[in-house]
Amino acid sequence: MNDKHQDDRSVIGVYHLSKKYGDRMALDDVSLSVANGEFVFLVGPSGAGKSTLMRMIYMDETPTSGQVVVGKYVSTRMKRSQLPHLRRKVGVVFQDFKLLEDRDVFENVAISMRIRGARSFDVKRQVAHLLNQVGLYHKRNESPASLSGGEQQRVAIARAVVGSPAILLADEPTGNLDPEVTEEILRLLFRINSAGTAVLMATHNHEMVRNFGQRIVHLRDGTLHEDERTGLVGNLSDRLDTLQHERERLHRIENELSRARKVAAATTIASPAAVPGTAVATPDAPALSDASDKGGAEE
């Protein structure tokens, strides 16, 4: 096993990953790859191993066997001194927000930049920009404890992305929030994703995420149960473009089809016995069947 498994576009590679706590198998031979800019839901009931998998991706836990590759960082070759640098490439958001209680909203976001030694001018500008984006600039001087759950999670998300990480991990980010706020948080995550950040979001709520048309990976009892790929990779706006393109293509196919029918009808009138041969001989026909096969595979 080596990191050659990872293709050029993947930002997270998980290879035959197992984690054992005592006698309990928390994860059992899980393999998964997340492409650059992809949005993936990690779905499974409580105890399925979602959080364990997340923790191994930001390398807070070491695998019992297998390997995790995040960008240029490989879990089996990871030095302790490299860990902070990995964490700066991977933003993490938690169900319980994990905000610093003894600092105000501004400093909670700023801390991500301060640890990198950013200039205070840059810190001010960028943190203000992000707080505006999550709609909390007016609360920048307040303590996290005085904010609602949704607001606290928005602060946590701002903190996670302030350093423009390539990956955002969100572990049940909406677990403590009511449905309206949940939607707001999801929209924020989609927006972050559309700017190019790969997002891996764990949730136990399949119902909530099934209709977004994103890739959904199902974990059950520590194993990868199903990988619902829509077959399309890219961020949401790319996805919309692709759908548009697909619709136009289907439209074209329909046109071809009706034209072929007309041709076939005309031929039948001229020579009824030659119908199948004529259909095959139609120049557009192979392209048509080819296209519909492809369309089927992509469903």
Partner: peptide, 14 residues
């Protein structure tokens, strides 16, 4: 302890 844990998560060096 909680603050220390959070700082480690956002990539603060030891």
């Amino acid at each position: 302890r909680k603050s220390i844990e959070i700082l480690r998560l956002v990539g603060a060096t030891n």
